[in-house]
Computed example of a mutant assay.
Amino acid sequence: MNRRDFIASAGVGLATILLGDYNFISIAAAQDQNGVCIYCNNCQPCPAGIDISAVNKCLDLANSSNESAKDYYFNLSKHASDCIGCGVCEQRCPVHVKVRKQMRQAIGLFGK
């Protein structure tokens, strides 16, 4: 299950997530969360200074055809292209998100 499907199955919109209301997570089955960023920030701190959950939020917004995704992404202080590929974030992630893969997707989508 991808992030977009997970969010849709939880019955919440991306606006709710962007506002920081993650209460919906408690109603989702644990296996549905596996590999899907839940923006918990357990991946932090990033040695390169990337706000990993913000990058993932931008990907979610872009995949939902939200026009503000690109602006939101470019306003971040660090971008996916700043990723050094160390994998520390993946070791910390409780739901096994392939963060380095997400960073490559963000670079492909946003160009930086």
Rank of each mutant, 00 (worst) to 15 (best):
A8S: 12
Q91N: 13
Q31V: 12
N75Q: 13
Y22A: 07
N63M: 07
F110S: 11
D60E: 14
A8R: 10
S9L: 06
I38Q: 10
L18E: 09
I27P: 04
V88P: 00
Y73F: 11
G87H: 00
D5M: 09
C89Q: 01
G108Q: 14
N56Y: 00
Q105W: 02
D71W: 05
V88Y: 09
R4G: 08
A69T: 07
C86S: 07
Q33N: 07
N66Q: 12
S68E: 13
M103Q: 04
C89F: 05
R4T: 09
N23G: 15
G111S: 07
D21H: 00
F74T: 15
Q44S: 15
D51T: 00
G11N: 04
Q102V: 08
L61R: 02
D60V: 11
N75E: 15
S53Q: 12
G20Q: 10
R92Y: 10
G35T: 01
R4M: 08
G111T: 02
S77E: 08
Q44I: 13
D71A: 15
V12N: 06
P94I: 07
D71Y: 07
R92G: 08
S64M: 10
M103V: 00
P45Q: 05
V97M: 01
G11C: 12
A54K: 09
H79N: 11
K70W: 06
P45A: 11
F24K: 09
D32P: 03
H79K: 11
F24D: 04
C58A: 15
Y39P: 05
C40L: 03
I50K: 01
S64V: 00
A69I: 04
T16N: 08
C40K: 04
P45M: 10
H79F: 01
Y72L: 09
I50V: 12
G49S: 14
G85R: 10
L18H: 01
S64Y: 02
V36Q: 13
S26N: 15
G35D: 12
Y39I: 14
I25T: 14
P47A: 12
V95S: 04
M103R: 02
F24C: 08
F6V: 00
G87M: 08
P45F: 06
K101L: 12
D32V: 08
C43E: 06
N56W: 02
A10C: 15
S64D: 12
